[in-house]
C-alpha cells in the first residue's frame, strides 16, 4: 500500500473526504454568519441555537406531524427564517446603530435561553432521527466507504453556498443589498425599502442555519448542545475568512474542514484546537482575515 508520511494513502483520502463533509457544515453556517454580519453588523451568537432549532424542528415535524425529511428541507428553513424575522423586528432592529457588543450580548442571551428551553423539554442525551430511505447505504470509493447521506450533504451545501454567493454578488437584488449596507440612507433615498431588506437578510441568514440543522439531524444526534459545540469553530472560520466576506467564508469553511480532517490523521488530540491555531496565525499576518478588506 502506498504511504505518505507513514500514513496509508487510503486512510488519508478517507480523512480528506470526511474533512470536506464537515467543511460543508462549517461553510454553510459561516456563510449565514457572514451574510448577517456583512449586512446588519450584528455578530449573531444565536446562530448555533438556530442550527439546533432547525434539527429539532425536523425531529418534531417527523415525530408529531409525520412530516418527512424532504418536506423538512423546505419547511424547516422557512420556519426558522420566520423566527429570525420576528427576532429581528422585535429586538435586533434597535441595535444597529450601537456598538457590536450589544448585538453580541443580545444574541448570546437568546442562544442560552433557546438552548435552555430545549434542554428542559427534551433532555441532553439527544433524540434519534433516521436517514431518509433514499439516502441510506454507502458508495464504495475504493479508498473508503462514503455514506450516501454524507455525499448528499456536501452537494446540497455547495449548491446553496454558491447560489447565495451568486445572488449577493451578481444579481440586482444583491446589488441593492450591498448598497443598503454601504450607505443605507442614500439607498433609501433611491426608493429602496432598506429595513425590509435587512429584515429579510437576517431571516435568510438564520434560515441557512436552520437548513444546516436539518442536514445535520440524521448525521448527528439531535441534541440541545449540538449548536454550542459547533458555533465557536464556525466563528473562528468567519474570523479567518474575513468578517463579512461571502466567498471567504465558503472557501475557509471547506478548507478548515479539510485541515481538521488531516489533523485527525496525524495527531487526533489536536483536532479541535487546530482551527484556533490557524486563526491566531492568520490574525497575526492578516488582521482582517484571509479574504477581508481593512476598513
Amino acid at each position: 500500500m502506498t504511504e505518505i508520511f507513514g500514513i496509508p494513502i487510503q486512510a488519508l483520502m478517507g480523512q480528506l473526504m470526511l474533512g470536506l463533509v464537515n467543511g460543508s457544515f462549517y461553510a454553510m453556517l459561516s456563510l449565514g454568519l457572514a451574510v448577517i454580519f456583512g449586512m446588519l453588523n450584528i455578530i449573531n451568537f444565536a446562530h448555533g441555537a438556530m442550527y439546533m432549532a432547525g434539527a429539532f424542528f425536523a425531529w418534531m415535524g417527523l415525530t408529531y406531524w409525520g412530516i418527512g425529511y424532504w418536506w423538512s428541507l423546505i419547511l424547516v428553513p422557512l420556519t426558522v427564517g420566520v423566527v429570525g424575522v420576528i427576532i429581528e423586528r422585535t429586538m435586533l432592529q434597535w441595535l444597529y446603530q450601537l456598538d457590536h457588543l450589544y448585538g453580541l450580548l443580545l444574541t448570546f442571551g437568546l442562544a442560552l435561553m433557546i438552548e435552555g428551553a430545549f434542554r428542559y423539554f427534551y433532555g441532553s442525551s439527544g433524540l434519534p432521527y433516521s436517514i431518509p430511505e433514499e439516502l441510506t447505504g454507502a458508495i464504495n470509493l475504493g479508498f473508503m466507504f462514503l455514506p450516501k447521506y454524507r455525499a448528499w450533504v456536501v452537494v446540497v451545501s455547495l449548491v446553496v453556498c454558491l447560489a447565495t454567493w451568486f445572488v449577493i454578488e451578481k444579481t440586482k437584488l444583491g446589488a441593492y443589498l450591498r448598497a443598503a449596507t454601504e450607505n443605507p440612507r442614500l439607498t433609501q433615498a433611491f426608493g429602496i425599502n432598506v429595513p425590509l431588506m435587512v429584515m429579510l437578510t437576517y431571516g435568510f441568514g438564520v434560515a441557512l442555519a436552520g437548513l444546516g440543522g436539518v442536514l445535520a439531524a440524521p448525521a448527528y444526534a439531535v441534541s440541545p448542545l449540538m449548536g454550542s459545540n459547533l458555533i465557536i469553530v464556525v466563528f473562528a472560520v468567519v474570523v479567518i475568512g474575513g468578517m463579512g466576506s461571502i466567498m471567504g467564508s465558503i472557501l475557509t469553511g471547506l478548507s478548515l474542514g479539510v485541515i481538521e480532517g488531516l489533523t485527525k490523521v496525524f495527531y487526533a488530540e489536536a483536532s479541535n484546537t487546530v482551527v484556533f491555531v490557524v486563526m491566531v496565525i492568520v490574525l497575526m499576518i492578516r488582521p482582517a482575515g484571509l479574504f477581508g478588506k481593512e476598513k
Partner: peptide
C-alpha cells in the same frame, strides 16, 4: 460531535 474520522481509523 463528529467521530467519523476516528471510526475510520
Amino acid at each position: 460531535s463528529d467521530f467519523s474520522s476516528f471510526l475510520l481509523k
